[in-house]
Amino acid sequence: MADKTKVAAAEQYYAPPPDLGKWESFRIFIYNSETGQFLGRTGSSWAKILLFYVIFYAVLVGFFTIMLVIFFQTLDNNKPKWQMEGSLIGNNPGMGFRPLPDTDNVESTLIYYKANDKGSVLKWAKVIDDFLQPYRKKGSGSGETAGAENRVACTPTAGPVGEKQVCDVPVDDFHPCTSGNQYNYEEAGPCVFLKLNKIFNWVPKPYNTTEDLPGNMPEDLKQHIKMVAGKPESNTVWVSCEGENPADVENIGPVQYIPRRGFPNFYYPFTNKEGYLSPLVAVLFEKPRTGVLINIECKAWAKNIVYDRYERRGSVHFELMVDRS
């Protein structure tokens, strides 16, 4: 009798759960009134797991915050931690040009327009106007215009005096490369603005004497350096623009550099002072051959600027095509 009772108890203990339908099983999973479980857990079980995750994520957020605070303690808001050779950009400034073509094709470097088409001219003039807007701000402001009151007129013999002062770039004096003249685009002799990329604490070493001039430097630039050698204005990062190929040399025509043939040393070094703007050179292509695509390369010349055409170091490439049809 005792054995039969044990067998019956065992059969009852291992009895399979009742066969429930899908909806009934789902209802019991949502809330089981017999066990008091909600989604398979009791209230105390849910409280324990929620408490665990609250503590876990609180510790995680605290650790991340402490790491950020320690990281920001190593940074200086006014200057980069890694400079010159120790930085990713190095100590060899690149060049840029404006106006840039439409952003629809970021790989394009072609400046193409019709000189007798008012809309085409105004399109490029507006692009340059937008680029030069920070240079025209004379009062205090924010963003790119912040610190405009710190800008002062500089000459090769008179640079900034005050600790916060920076040299102004008087773009409205770049005649005929001015907004009122639509940057000479309507005259089929467009202006293209050049700039050096900013590198913190970089100081150019200019070719200010007739000695050690590079053999690949254009002859007209060599003659210009010889005329100003030893004078204050010779302390300049020189600029030259030429056609890349023999056909381009024939088609490019006369070139002017406004207001001077390079970036004067009194604009350097860049130390992130409020109001600082990169110096500009307006290159006036007086009479480029119309209806022809011209490949142009502009170079920056200084003893500590390395030139490499294939990697575009110390130079910039763009194409120019002026149409009159």
Rank of each mutant, 00 (worst) to 15 (best):
D19P: 03
I28E: 05
A8Q: 14
H175P: 03
P101M: 07
D117F: 05
F285D: 07
P246K: 12
M84W: 06
Y57D: 10
S87E: 10
F285E: 11
F63S: 13
A282W: 00
E163L: 15
F52M: 06
G262V: 14
Y135V: 12
K303M: 13
E242N: 12
F72Q: 10
Y207T: 02
V237A: 08
N251W: 03
K137C: 13
T42C: 01
Q83K: 09
H175W: 13
Y57R: 07
D3V: 04
D248V: 12
Q165R: 00
K114I: 03
A8P: 00
M67Y: 13
F200M: 05
Q37E: 10
P18C: 00
V106F: 09
L293D: 14
L132V: 09
F200D: 12
H224D: 12
G119A: 10
N235Y: 06
E85C: 02
L221C: 14
G253V: 11
N116A: 08
F29M: 07
C298R: 10
F71Y: 12
I49M: 10
N181R: 04
V106M: 05
C241Q: 07
P156K: 04
R151G: 02
E233L: 08
V106P: 06
T210K: 09
F64L: 12
V249P: 00
D76F: 02
M227V: 13
Q37I: 00
T42M: 00
V106L: 03
G40D: 04
M95K: 03
I49D: 10
C167K: 02
H175L: 13
E311S: 09
G159Q: 06
S278E: 15
G180H: 03
Y13N: 09
L51F: 12
L280H: 01
K226T: 12
W82P: 00
K226P: 06
G40Q: 05
W301F: 12
P80T: 06
N245T: 15
G40L: 08
G21N: 09
V59D: 02
D102K: 05
I252Y: 14
Y57L: 11
A148L: 04
N197C: 02
N32Q: 09
